[in-house]
Design a protein around this nucleic acid. Sequence first.
RNA 1: CGGGAUGUAGCGCAGUCUGGUAGCGCACCUGAAUGGGGUUCAGGGGGUCGGAAGUUCAAAUCUUCUCAUCCCGACCA
Length: 572
Amino acid sequence: MRYSELLLPTLKETPTEAEVVSHRLLLRAGFIRKLSSGVYTYLPLGLASVRKVEQIVREEMNRAGAQELLMPMVQPADLWKESGRWEKYGPELLRFTDRHNRESCLGPTHEEVITDLVRREIHSYRDLPINLYQIQTKFRDEIRPRFGLMRGREFIMKDGYSFDATEEGAEATYQKMYDAYQRIFKRCGLSFRAVEADTGTIGGSFSHEFMVLADTGEDTLAICKHCDYAANMEKATVKQPVSLDRELLPLQKVETPGKRKVGAVCEFLGISPEELVKTMVYLADGDPVAVLVRGDHEVQPVKLKNMLGAVEVELADDKQVFETTGVPSGYLGPINLNIKIVADLEVEGIKNFTIGANEKNYHVQNTNLGRDFKVSQVGDLRQITEDDPCPDCGGDLELTRGIEVGHIFKLGDSYSKALQATFQDSNSEEQNFIMGCYGIGVSRTVAAAIEQNHDENGIVFPLPLAPFQVIILNLDPKNEQITGAAESFYNQLQQESIEVLLDDRDERPGVKFKDADLIGIPYRITIGKRFAKEGEVEVRMRKDGLIKSLSPDEAVAEVVNTIRAEIKAIRD
RNA sequence: CGGGAUGUAGCGCAGUCUGGUAGCGCACCUGAAUGGGGUUCAGGGGGUCGGAAGUUCAAAUCUUCUCAUCCCGACCA
């Protein structure tokens, strides 16, 4: 492609709307333009990167035995009513009626449609397992779209669905998809981890999120430095603490004037936060619950939600705390508290800890769970920390940020039951399909790749996702000798099936350098006055800025060989 | 939906407090020079000041309503 003919509107300045780096760079590098909130046009370069991801996904899904199909985006309400999700899905589902007053929606996901298809077409265990996927634009009317392609309302997604005759079969399929996802993200050239995800009500270890590691990620992960353990903070289990063996001391009420925060109380009493227990009030579906955690720990709301079986938990504010307990926040404690109390595991282990006295300006020391108060449940409720040992191997943990680009899930028979999707097993008995679903945010993967790979000059694409592999800079289009050489490079590289962009614009060299860096093409060949004088061109790597001065023949060989080697290495 | 902010040329902004007929940089068009890290000079085009209503002799500026966008929370590929 010739730059002079390409729609590639790069920007010197960042539009104010863009806050995160991938969004800024996608706009500046001329990859996307916004049409409305969370809805973007992919310009030629942006689309090229999206296609790269799609192609890798396709190849690996096909290799894993899945088949591609394409389902409608517009879906009838009836199907969603049948699965019960027409009511359950909420306002994220964009609904509308057509001219015949038929209710429809834009597909945010396709469990209903695929299950409907399979129940019509598959009737025998002999045809199982079957694994179907599509790559398609999804629409979810997100509450708050943000970060450009990271969370759009309209986005490109690969969604796959598997149907098995047995649990064991479904688990094997799950494993296949897990392996395929590992290959996909490796082939994208990204640094990532598969983490155990919260399975909510279904339980078990059959949900993994694939997280691209990037400081700007929305999720925090706990990963082990020694073994393969990696988990989302919501899921990361904390090891059972050791119970301290100490003599229990008598309760002692102490005055703590104006000391509400853990730090202030500890300083005032000369104790450490490990010897104090905080009482946090949450509203679980509107009902107040006191949650006890050690002073230096934080409550993990998702764990709390799962323990209580609540739909939504929310930290109560000071006003709500006072209204429900009659105690000003800061002096709350579990003794004689009039609301439900649950405690983190750790609280069981500590002896003689300090708590609020349920009275302004007072705390109570030497408190002990069981002796002085009771709780209705004890469990893992706190956020894991870097000081905790790995739950698998006991090694050191590290907390890092990640961006969720893929999610695989064993669904079981919930959808096949709801939609009465059955097949006959070898005993001629009707069985529900055992399903799994597997998603990849294709457009988000491009954004995540940029979040992970950029510098102050722009995007630094991993080779497999770059819209072009090589950019040739003709620094002096008016010089026949230089232009001739540039054209010759362009032709030769194209003949070698290298994806190449020729910057043939009548622009100053500086402009071309800046743009080449900004759009992040991995290899750059510069032809300028050094070629006119010494017959040498320059090959530069975007990643590390390494420059080699080579003769034209050497340069072509260098670029072709390195690119082929790199692609091969990633593929194998 | 709750909290915060912003809407003035394609992009980045000034002008708003204190009302007086809209400006700067970049980008764009014309011409010339320049040609290895966003070059320079000269000339030029482009604006319902987000929208509506109101106050006023006069509104980008004051008032009210409204729409849109962005950031922080709950949700998710």
